[in-house]
Each structure stands twice: as structure tokens, then as C-alpha cells.
Design a protein around this nucleic acid. Structure first.
Length: 574
DNA sequence: TTTTGTTGCCAC
DNA sequence: AAACGTGGCAACAAAA
């Protein structure tokens, strides 16, 4: 079976809104081809070419699959061809940190395969300018450029397919055989594509209810603010940042924290310590919350039946995924968790939701290789209660969820927060902030926790040495996590988070393998959480299969564990 | 005018 | 001694 590289030229990102493709191009080992997808003949020719391939290579393949499905009503995934993606392959073979420059097709090609690629993207820019459109602003600009200069655009479309083919060939020589990462990514591609294509159903009734509710809350918070500040200039509109600052200083709020650029900061960390003396600050923070809720979470779903997010499989250098347009990975859970109730299963369907239980802590225990700490977690004891016990020199039982007094419960939570912060490489100032304790105390806390983690120093110095000598650490699956030598303190985080991200991807693959025959479709991936949609009749079976599929993604001591189950109502109840 | 940067804040 | 990591996005501000 032949290998083909393929590409589509499109009118925009909104394939689900009819912003379809107008050109399809493809390349085999020798030749390049292009077809006008707006004609029946061209569309057929493109479809036939795709169908003939045993291996298909794209750059950001998911997007082209969506475009092809939307334009030709032909689903590449149904054909069973092996899919490759040069964007993802490049990010594995030449990791972020090692590569300077972007992972765009033409940039990669110019660096590794053919220098003239760079000139072409500039030439398209020029053509766009000559007809007065901006490629950045309006994706439809590509269409307009094609209409104005069809021959040139068609030539470039063919070249894109050629570049993709040649880049793929080159990248194959750069993949490290000891690194399993690309194989994992490759299997994830079609699963994510299906998730994007299916999308998540929105309950408009709930959207409208929440919208009205939050608009009222916003109004309610706004009034006292306007009264105190003298006008609404301090809230929104031109000059509002300065106006707010002026108003707060006028009130006598002794702001002192600085932003990155040296201005006085007004973020919640800067405000919270003065709320007792100036209750209006609480109102301000509330108002911001309502405003954020409306603009960021309500707007993108207002009036939509289904949202189709776009997953970026390897965007983060740690290997984590990200989600955009809209970002489905930062829907509020604590602050305004009602937002999640807008996302619902389709009729007669349910969500089956599972997430890995404390995966970072488990991986930390695994890597520290200390039997006592491993055992603690293996036996299901609370590692944060243990840590609180170590810090305060008391038995851990006094800090467990069941036994702890409210004060001790607080101490346990501080220990927990600090654990997370440490694994992210945080220093004393940040720990002091998040726990609302003095900096000196935070420093002491960090020290005690590190000392109570048997094997922590050994692990950390091993990671630092590795970074200093080769510039990266390897995840459990061999992925290179390039770490700046100046910032070696993030090495532990790179290892833990990178490994966790890959476990999630393997879990996703196994869940798909185990449940696809039941009609289950993974819809959302939120770092350590997976949301699958399936018919209610299949729910029990899917739910029974998922824990094992997820937990066997990586064999470690202590073993992985998940929690979750069936949700019939909405995402908020997960 | 358009583009790019900054601030603040949501998630894990 | 000091250092929190990864993202996306809205709104505003400044530069081109």
C-alpha cells in the first residue's frame, strides 16, 4: 500500500460551522497533485486518492480529517489507513527546548528539508497583502488569495503535500528507537479526532438560566463598586486598569505587590490580605468572578447545540495535552462549578467519568523507590495525613479525614498543597502565599516535607545530574523532557508530569480498545480525567471495563488507581 | 488601524 | 539564595 501525504486549504477553523476546504493536495514518493474541492470531479479525485493510500501523513492531521469529512462527507478514519502526523512526530523527535523556532510545516521544512519553504510562506503573505487581506486575522484570506492567484496557490498547495511527505521521511530518521512516545501519540490521534468531531452536547436551557443568574449577580456586585469608586470607569473600558488602581489607592488600600513589569498589582493575591479592613475588595473579587464567568464560559456556548473543542496533542513541553476554542480543560470546578452543568450527555446517553487518583503522588512514591512510603500508599493510607504527622511530630492518624479536628484538617491541607507546590518546583514565597503563612514558616515547611520524603533528595540530585550532563530527563516511556540547565529545579516536575501525561494517553488508548465495540466515545481529556459518552444500556459494562484499562496503562509500585463512575445528569455531577 | 504584549484568572 | 510547572482566553494597553 502506498504512502501519501495530504493537505487541505480551508476557509477557516470552523469546519463544524461549514467553513470548509476548497483545495485538496497530496503527494506520493515522486509526484504532487492538487484538486479543486468545489467541483464534483475534483472532490472525487481527492477522495479516490485518499482511499488508495495505506498510510496517510498530514501536518496536524486531525484538522484535515475534519475538513475532509465536512467538505466531501468522507471520513478518513473509516478507511483504516495508518495515520501519521509530522507536527507530532517533530515534537517527539526534536523536543521543545532543543528546537528553536515553531513547529509549523514550513518552518520545520525550512530547517530540516528544504530552505525555500520559508520564502513561500512569505510569498503567500505578499499575495494576501496585495489584495488587502490579512492571513492572521481572517483564515478565509487563503480562499481569497486562491481566487486571485489560483495557479500560484495550487502550486503551493502541492508543495505543502510534498513538504509533509519529505519531512515525514526525514523525521523517521530522527526518532529514537528507545523512545516509545511517538507510537503512543500515533494511536491517540484518531481517538482525539473522533472526540473533537463528536463534540459535547450543550443544554441551552441551563446556559440561559445561568446567564440570567450571573448577569444579575454581576449587576448586584457592580453597584456598590460604582458607588465606592465614584464611577464605573474602574471596572471596564479604556483606562480602567489605571482607574482601578487610582481608586484603590484613593481608598487607602496599601497595595504593594508588583506585577512583572513593576506596576502595582491588583490581582487577588495582592488584595486578599486587605479584605478585612476594606470589605469592598471582596466585592471586587466577586465581581471579577462573575464577569469572568460570563465572558469566558458562557459566551462560547451561548446558542450552540454542540461544542467541538480542538485538542493539541503535544502542545506542552511536558507532553500534556491542551484544549482550545473553547478550552475544555479549565471549565470551573470550584469557582463557579455550575458551569459544568451546561455540558450534558446526548439523549439516552450517559457520561462515564474516571480520573486517576493522586497520580503525581503515586509516581513520586514510585520514583523515590522507598518501600515505606510505597507501602503507605499501596495500603490506601492518606499520604497527606502522614506528611502532616511528620511535620508536626504527631501520629498520622490524628490528621486523617475521619479523625482530624478542623484545625488539624487545615494542617493536613497545608501539607497537601505544599506537596503539590514542591513537585512543581515552587519556592518559599509561593508556598507562603497559597497557605497564607509567613515566608519563614513556609521555608521551614518545605524543608520538613522534603526531609520526610524518603528518597526525595536522592531522586532530585539524580535528576539534576542527568539534566546537567545531557540536558533532559526521560519519562518512564522514554520521552525526552528537555530542561533548561538554569532551571534544573523543574526537573522533578518534568519527570512526574511528563510520565503522568503519557500514562493518561496510554489509558485513553486502552479505554478506546476496551469499549469502542460498545459504542463508547471518549469526549474529554482533562490531564488526569477522562470523560466517555455511551448509550445508557452500555453504561454499566463500559464503567466496569474502564478502571482496568486505565490502571494497566503503567505498571508501577504503588499501583495506579482510579475513581469515578456513571453520570446521567451533567458534567458537574462527575 | 492592526498587531503584539500585559494582566488577571480558570483548570490540572 | 531563590525559584511553582503546564496550558487558554478575555480585556485592556501600548507599539507598529
Amino acid at each position: 500500500m502506498t504512502k501519501l501525504a495530504f493537505d487541505t486549504e480551508t476557509k477557516g477553523f470552523g469546519w463544524y460551522d461549514g467553513e470548509t476546504a476548497f483545495l485538496g493536495s497530496w503527494a506520493d514518493a515522486k509526484n504532487e497533485y492538487v484538486a479543486n474541492l468545489l467541483t464534483a470531479d475534483g472532490a472525487q479525485e481527492y477522495e479516490n486518492a485518499l482511499k488508495s493510500a495505506g498510510t496517510l501523513v498530514g501536518h496536524n492531521t486531525s484538522f484535515d480529517v475534519h475538513q475532509t469529512r465536512a467538505t466531501l462527507d468522507y471520513d478518513i478514519l473509516s478507511q483504516g489507513a495508518v495515520l501519521h502526523d509530522t507536527d507530532i512526530k517533530a515534537r517527539i523527535a526534536i523536543p521543545t527546548g532543543q528546537r528553536k523556532g515553531s513547529y509549523k510545516l514550513k518552518d520545520l521544512t525550512a530547517t530540516f528539508v528544504n530552505e525555500e519553504a520559508k520564502a513561500e510562506s512569505e510569498a503567500i503573505d505578499e499575495m494576501a497583502k496585495s489584495i488587502g487581506v490579512s492571513l492572521k486575522e481572517t483564515p478565509e484570506a487563503y480562499y481569497l488569495v486562491w481566487r486571485a492567484y489560483p495557479d500560484v496557490m495550487e502550486l503551493y498547495a502541492k508543495k505543502d503535500a510534498r513538504y509533509t511527505y519529505d519531512l515525514d521521511t526525514y523525521l523517521d530518521t530522527q526518532l529514537d528507537p528507545a523512545d516509545q512516545s511517538y507510537g503512543i501519540e500515533q494511536e491517540v490521534i484518531p481517538i482525539l479526532t473522533q472526540a473533537e468531531a463528536t463534540g459535547v452536547k450543550i443544554d441551552q436551557e441551563v446556559v440561559q438560566k445561568l446567564k440570567a443568574e450571573y448577569e444579575a449577580l454581576e449587576q448586584e456586585a457592580r453597584e456598590p463598586l460604582i458607588e465606592t469608586f465614584g464611577s464605573e470607569k474602574a471596572l471596564k473600558g479604556e483606562g480602567s486598569k489605571q482607574a482601578l488602581l487610582d481608586a484603590l489607592l484613593e481608598l487607602g488600600v496599601p497595595l504593594y505587590r508588583k506585577t512583572k513589569s513593576g506596576e502595582l498589582a491588583t490581582h487577588k493575591w495582592a488584595l486578599q490580605e486587605f479584605t478585612e479592613q476594606f470589605p469592598i475588595l471582596d466585592t471586587l473579587m466577586e465581581w471579577r468572578k462573575y464577569d469572568k464567568f460570563l465572558t469566558t464560559y458562557i459566551n462560547p456556548v451561548d446558542g450552540r447545540d454542540v461544542v467541538h473543542t480542538s485538542f493539541k496533542q503535544c502542545e506542552a513541553w511536558t507532553g500534556r495535552m491542551s484544549s482550545a476554542r473553547p478550552n475544555m480543560q479549565n471549565i470551573p470546578k470550584k469557582a463557579g462549578k455550575e458551569a459544568r452543568s451546561m455540558f450534558v450527555p446526548r439523549e439516552d446517553h450517559v457520561f462515564v467519568v474516571y480520573d486517576y487518583d493522586s497520580i503525581e503522588v503515586r509516581l513520586l512514591a514510585y520514583y523515590m523507590a522507598n518501600e515505606a512510603y510505597r507501602k503507605l500508599i499501596r495500603e490506601g493510607l492518606d499520604p497527606h495525613a502522614y506528611m502532616a504527622g511528620q511535620i508536626h511530630g504527631r501520629p498520622m492518624e490524628e490528621f486523617t479525614k475521619e479523625n482530624a479536628t478542623p484545625e488539624d484538617r487545615l494542617l493536613r491541607d497545608i501539607a497537601k498543597n505544599t506537596m503539590f507546590a514542591i513537585s512543581y518546583g515552587a519556592g518559599a514565597p509561593r508556598v507562603a502565599d497559597m497557605n497564607q503563612i509567613p515566608k519563614a514558616e513556609a521555608k521551614e515547611l518545605i524543608k520538613k516535607i522534603k526531609k520526610s520524603l524518603p528518597g526525595y533528595y536522592r531522586l532530585n540530585s539524580r535528576i539534576r545530574k542527568k539534566i546537567e550532563s545531557v540536558g533532559y530527563v526521560n519519562t518512564a516511556f522514554g520521552k525526552k523532557q528537555v530542561v533548561d540547565k538554569e532551571k534544573a529545579y523543574v526537573g522533578l516536575n518534568a519527570l512526574i508530569q511528563g510520565t503522568a501525561a503519557q500514562i493518561m494517553k496510554r489509558g485513553l488508548i486502552q479505554v478506546h480498545e476496551a469499549t469502542a465495540h460498545l459504542g463508547a466515545i471518549p469526549l474529554l481529556l482533562v490531564h488526569d480525567e477522562i470523560v466517555v459518552e455511551c448509550h445508557k444500556d452500555a453504561a454499566e459494562e463500559v464503567s466496569a471495563l474502564m478502571p482496568d484499562a486505565l490502571c494497566t496503562a503503567f505498571d508501577c509500585d504503588p499501583p495506579l488507581q482510579v475513581e469515578g463512575g456513571i453520570v446521567t445528569t451533567n458534567y458537574a455531577d462527575a
